[in-house]
């Protein structure tokens, strides 16, 4: 006969321990496994990548700046840098650290793996976009060159990752788009989002919460030190300049994006008709393919024909069939702006 109080407390202690060890992401077990995985090679590759980004942004790398961004002990960093120098990847000149050609190539290889993996996660899995970066940070150290090339082939050799960053080719070329950050973009001009920075996470979360996406059309209405007000796909958005700074915008190019004024299908009221303008860039992978298969292609007439008792999902009449979509899906289908509906409402 076991004392029930004792049995119950024992049970909850065990449950708590298991929870602390294995809870998603933050469990001690995962942390410990992650620590084991981050060896010398990982660290070196992270340092290389960081120097590359610094040089790319027009800064020079130094011990101090590296220590600030990488969050490791100085002692460890010095050791790694010495090792890299002896391998001929970098050269040091006083406090300045710069990449040699080999180091540069190495860094580009890592970046290629990282961005392709993000593309893979976006197109071929159901992983939430908040986790792409984090998972790619791990995968980039593990993928071999052959694996990366096979991955590129099966993804159709993409040029940009889901955040809009160019993916280096196997030869190391990258296609950059001319762009400026959103606060600097001229007022009243048509543009589209080419890149959304996924770091730091807190700012990225705010951008995602506003439903802003790479490829989305925008027009800045008002820009000052306090706020940036702009419209994107028929909805008005207000951001602080700090957040807006992490969004890069380019002038409207002629093909590929929607030239007409568009809005979201989710805004089409019951019984209203419109024409499909296209699918948002943010609609990816299996979801995009499925919507295209179902007939959500540009120029097709669409009508909101039914709403479920709870308001979501709604059914749309398209090419003779009634297809139900959830609101978050209908958000990604863009329709032509009807003339009688005021822009921005």
């Amino acid at each position: 006969m076991i004392n029930p109080v004792l049995a119950l407390s024992l049970f909850f202690v065990v449950l708590l321990v298991v929870f602390l060890l294995f809870r998603p992401e933050k469990g001690f077990y995962w942390k410990f496994a992650g620590m084991l995985a981050s060896n010398e090679k990982t660290l070196m590759e992270d340092v290389l990548k960081q120097i590359y980004h610094m040089e790319h942004a027009g800064n020079t790398g130094s011990l101090l700046s590296l220590k600030g961004t990488l969050d490791i002990s100085e002692e460890k960093l010095v050791k790694v840098i010495a090792g890299m120098e002896s391998k001929g990847l970098i050269r040091t000149d006083g406090t300045k650290i710069s990449l040699r050609q080999e180091g540069n190539d190495y860094a580009i290889k890592i970046i290629r793996a990282h961005r392709l993996w993000e593309k893979y996660l976006a197109d071929k899995t159901g992983v939430d976009k908040r986790e792409w970066h984090h998972l790619a940070e791990r995968a980039e150290h593990k993928l071999t060159k052959e694996q990366v090339d096979d991955l590129a082939l099966s993804l159709g050799d993409p040029r940009y990752d889901p955040h809009g960053d160019p993916i280096p080719t196997s030869k190391g070329d990258m296609q950059y788009i001319q762009h400026v950050s959103l606060p600097l973009f001229p007022v009243d001009k048509q543009g589209y989002i080419v890149h959304i920075e996924d770091e730091p996470e807190s700012i990225y979360e705010q951008i995602i919460a506003k439903n802003l996406q790479v490829g989305a059309q925008i027009k800045v209405i008002e820009a000052n030190e306090r706020r940036i007000r702009f419209s994107s796909e028929g909805e008005e958005v207000v951001l602080t300049p700090i957040v807006a700074n992490n969004i890069s915008v380019a002038e409207q190019r002629r093909s590929g994006v929607f030239r007409k004024n568009t809005r979201k299908l989710s805004g089409l009221k019951l019984g209203e008709k419109s024409k499909i303008a296209g699918l948002s860039r943010e609609c990816r992978g299996a979801n995009r393919r499925r919507l295209l298969d179902l007939g959500f292609v540009p120029g097709t007439e669409v009508e909101t024909c039914l709403s479920s008792p709870l308001g979501n999902p709604r059914a749309y009449l398209i090419k003779g069939a009634s297809i139900a979509l959830r609101k978050e899906q209908a958000d990604l289908v863009l329709i032509e702006m009807n003339n009688d509906i005021a822009y921005g409402n």
């Binding site: 071929k124 299996a286 393919r289 499925r290 295209l292 298969d293």
Partner: peptide
């Protein structure tokens, strides 16, 4: 199937 071009 609706199509033969997708991945399901």
């Amino acid at each position: 199937t609706y199509s033969l071009l997708s991945t399901s």
